[in-house]
Simulated assay, not measured.
Amino acid sequence: MPGSLPKNFPDPQIKRISTKTIGASLLSILNLERGIFYTVWELIKNPGAAMRRYLFTNRSGFIEPMKFLVVTIPIYLFISFTFFPDSGFFAGFENGLAGNQDDAIDPEKQALTKNLISIFKEYANLLLLITVPLAAIFTKILFRKYRLNFGEHLVINAFLYGFLTFASTLLLPTAWISTDVNSWLMALLYLVYTTYFFQSLFQFSWWRSFGNTILIYLFSLLITVVVFIGFMIVGLLVLL
């Protein structure tokens, strides 16, 4: 029971805040009390059945797809940037940008590079989110004969990329062994799980699913690079 309040405080007319209510609010915001772990398990067990159920029959128990992304992407980026700064695509992009500058010769370019990298890290979560609707456009074209609308493809890609981000976070500690090992495991995760995901969802052959995965993977790399280059151009225009 909470202690009595000082005389200059009003008598509570609503339930008082406690660590229990704060914890419950946090769980409600993140939907952790029922959604995210159930969703991850269903996406492991049978992603195709999970997607068909979410889209057409019963959405109870699942975390909302965009919330799934909004939860998993910041967690991945925070852990990656804080504890594993030399791993992943972001580190390669950052190192490539920094490597193009001669710090000893041009300190102004060095300062500009640091500012760009800082902005890049600040908005990295937004950049990743932007790639999801673009991927949905591509899968809608690729799987057009199944006649799913854009919103349904957006949901499918949100769950797919949310799961991949969740699993990638679990793989980050392998960067302590080797950044190359981490990179290969990330690529293997993407290829194997995406093949499994679309084979389970659309029920076509494994070879066809793998071929579609390669196309989606190449498109994802392309749009990621294009989005990042566009971001860097805008960043340069702002800073110059």
Score class of each variant (00 low, 15 high):
G3C: 11
P6L: 04
P6H: 04
K7A: 13
N8M: 06
F9Y: 13
P12H: 00
K15A: 10
K15T: 08
R16F: 08
I17F: 06
K20A: 13
T21M: 09
T21I: 12
I22F: 10
G23A: 13
A24Y: 07
S25N: 13
S25T: 14
L26W: 09
I29T: 10
I29D: 03
I29K: 05
L30I: 09
E33D: 15
R34Y: 13
I36N: 05
F37G: 01
F37H: 11
V40R: 05
W41H: 12
L43G: 03
L43T: 09
K45W: 12
G48Y: 04
A49R: 15
A50V: 07
A50N: 05
M51A: 03
R53T: 08
R53K: 15
Y54E: 02
F56G: 07
I63K: 00
L69S: 04
I73L: 14
I75P: 00
Y76F: 15
L77K: 07
F81C: 05
F84M: 08
G88A: 05
A91M: 09
A91D: 07
G92T: 09
F93P: 00
E94P: 09
L97N: 00
A98Q: 11
G99C: 07
A104F: 14
I105R: 13
I105K: 14
P107I: 13
P107R: 08
K109G: 14
Q110F: 14
Q110V: 12
K114E: 13
N115S: 14
N115W: 03
S118E: 08
I119C: 01
F120V: 01
E122V: 06
N125H: 14
N125V: 13
L129H: 03
L129N: 04
V132K: 03
L134R: 08
L134A: 12
A135E: 01
A136L: 03
A136M: 04
I137V: 14
T139A: 04
T139N: 02
K140M: 11
F143V: 02
R144P: 01
K145D: 02
K145V: 04
Y146W: 11
Y146V: 05
R147H: 13
G151Q: 10
G151H: 05
V155H: 00
I156S: 01
F159V: 06
F159A: 06
L160I: 11
Y161S: 09
G162K: 02
F166S: 10
F166G: 04
A167K: 06
A167G: 06
S168E: 07
S168H: 01
L170Y: 11
L172A: 12
P173Y: 01
P173M: 11
T174Q: 03
A175Y: 03
T179A: 07
D180T: 15
V181C: 05
N182E: 04
L188F: 10
L191D: 04
Y196Q: 09
S205D: 10
W206K: 14
W207S: 13
R208V: 12
F210K: 01
I216C: 00
I216K: 07
F219Y: 12
I223H: 00
I223M: 02
V227T: 10
V227H: 01
G230W: 07
F231V: 01
I233N: 02
I233H: 05
V234D: 08
L237G: 02
V238M: 12
